[in-house]
Amino acid sequence: MEYKATRDAYGKALVEIGIDKNIVVLDADLSSSTKSAEFRKAYPERFFNIGIAELNMVDIAAGFALEGFKVFASSFAVFITGRAFEGVRQSICYQNLDVVLCGSHAGISVGEDGGSHQAICDISLMRSLPNMQVIVPADYNETYRAVLALHKNKGPFYLRTSREKSLNFTTHDFEIGKAHILRQGIHACIFACGPVIEFALKAAQELDKEKISVCVVDISTVKPLDTDTIYNTAKNVGHVFTLEEHSIIGGLGSAICEFLGENLPKRIKRIGINDKFGQSGTSADLFCEYGFSVENIASKIKKSLEDD
């Protein structure tokens, strides 16, 4: 299996769709990190660097969209959702504009830069905005396909990518609003999003050895939720888990709790960042420290089954 960063898929896909002259790409001085620089190299006349001014970039994206362009704007996830939030709300979502906001370097896996740069509430911020659709691809392949799909569909979208290389394992097509069951299981299910799905899959493999069968579902569209798949999966298992590289408040875990709480009440355990900020460290060390290791996930599921 190969390891590739989801942000690299963003850059590659932008170049692919860039043949469409209606596309403009914006960045806020991070194009070499977000990988929008790939588009800049291919189509310099339709790339605009707005400098270190994320809020201005988001409003300028709205201006382009009002003039009929399809806009892709990127920065670190922490800035494009948090620092620029008011522009995302007032200019992009309020006007329901066809803009893709790509937040790269999401989650704690950005690592050494530390807590100031680790986006842990970007999904919750974007999910709460009317009209916004939230896409959190699991790996390189899914990110690449997602960008092609976002090109064909009307925004606004928030697309979350990561800095670190991660397992590139998906083979399925991407469709907005469609979840994918990656493996079946009868005892528990994990609804997960982003590259941390790799850990869920490995935890499920470990639990197989102990005759615990776990279903893993890739919720690459956090909003709108694929409620049919979630309902039908949760209905058939005793234990429901969520997993995301994000705060347990307001993200995928909250979205699943909201939906199941109203439609199929059952106990749900959220695995994510427990209402605290990140810190510096390697991504591997941080994943262990914050409870995302394969062993940690497996033991949480096992304990839940034993407690029952």
């Binding site: 709205a62 201006g63 009002l66 009929g68 008011e86 007032q90």
Partner: peptide, 23 residues
């Protein structure tokens, strides 16, 4: 031409429009 109200955003959107019209 653009939704406004929260101050400052209209001017930035206008800048985006001006860039778009030039393009």
């Amino acid at each position: 031409c653009a939704s406004t109200g929260s101050l400052g955003h209209g001017l930035s959107q206008a800048v985006g429009m001006a860039l778009a019209l030039k393009l």
